Amino acid sequence: MTDTALVIGGTRFIGRHTVSELLTAGYEVAMVNRGNHGNPFADDDRVTRVEGDRKNERDLRAAKLSVEPDIVIDCVAYQPADVETATDVFADVDAYVYISSGDSYAIETVPKREGETPLRPCTQEQAVDSGSDTYGNRKAEGDRAVFDAAEEGVNAMAVRPCIVYGPYDYTERLDYWIDRVRSYDRVVVPGDGQNLWHRAYVEDIASALRIVAERGDPGTAYNVGDRRVLTLEETLEAIADAAGTDCEVVRASADALAAGGLEPADFVLYREYPHLLDTCALADLGWESTPVDEAMSRTVTEHRDAERDGGEWDPGRDAEERVLGVKETL
């Protein structure tokens, strides 16, 4: 008998890839969402869509009765109350998996390990907030809700991705760098280009969610990220290889950037302190990450056909040209 998976969300970035992963693995798949975003599976009769608001407990219970899921993947739980409600509604399913975040970790250490690196605290005010400044706090409190539910017998688990990239990424963070590499012969990177911000290919997150649902231990969180970690400079080189183009990476110190009125933090995916997650626990379940060159090739290919250019992250090419001019005189 075929197992049924219910994806809360399912139409955008991680959710979209998760639905595809589950279909490939042979699940019958249903999604519950409000329909605020385009449905990429609208013409796929293998996917059932149930209209509902994940904030509404009645809607979740109706979806459960309609779908009768064996596993539930929760892609859009952004406040701890969302997790508390979901683990109550789906308390008797074979597995409930919550998408947490590497931002749930409280301290800067290399690497960050599940069950060892402390999680962020979360006040009552933060728990009901929706701003970016409290994102990690709320995700950490969601993790604790998963742990509490597991103590009560719910087969609940969490997956903590680091920063995500891949096809259909509406954040456009990597799109900025892909556009730069494809558009210019010389691209400015802040610092020495060696800053490290661990990333996770979106299809690998989708496979991690499925594998954790099938093989994970209740009350456990699993980090997910590329098994080969790239510096920012190496990332641009991987993009250039995937795009079949040449690109000179120009490293710029804080002083050089200042000539263009810029600072390192103006560049997306720059992080002063390394962010690295230990992914051994997930690998022990049999999970593997996609080779980076393959993942980047798929990402760049989809970018070519998309209308995304990462413009909201653009520090200004004119400013960069001033920095390049300074570098040429040194």
Rank of each mutant, 00 (worst) to 15 (best):
C162L: 12
S101I: 00
N56E: 10
T123R: 05
G35C: 03
P111G: 03
G142H: 09
V154W: 04
E57L: 08
R49S: 12
D148N: 13
A95M: 06
Y135W: 11
D133M: 15
R160G: 03
N56C: 14
G38W: 07
R46D: 03
V50M: 08
R144F: 12
V97G: 00
D129I: 07
Q126R: 06
Q124W: 15
D133W: 14
E57A: 13
E125Q: 06
V93W: 00
T134P: 03
K112R: 15
T85L: 11
A91H: 13
G35P: 02
T134C: 05
V72T: 04
F41R: 02
R54C: 07
R54M: 07
N33T: 02
V97M: 01
D44W: 08
S132A: 15
E125M: 05
E68P: 08
V146P: 04
P69S: 10
D148G: 15
T85G: 02
D74R: 00
K55M: 14
T123P: 03
E84W: 06
G38C: 08
S66D: 11
R160N: 12
R46T: 05
L60S: 04
T48G: 09
V159R: 03
A145F: 06
D44F: 11
R34Q: 10
L65C: 10
P161K: 02
T134N: 00
I163P: 06
V76Q: 11
I99V: 12
E68W: 14
N33S: 07
D82H: 11
V89E: 01
T109C: 11
D103W: 08
A86N: 02
A30T: 02
F41E: 02
A81I: 15
E51W: 12
C122Y: 01
D92N: 13
P80I: 04
Q126T: 03
D92I: 07
T48C: 12
R120V: 02
D129K: 05
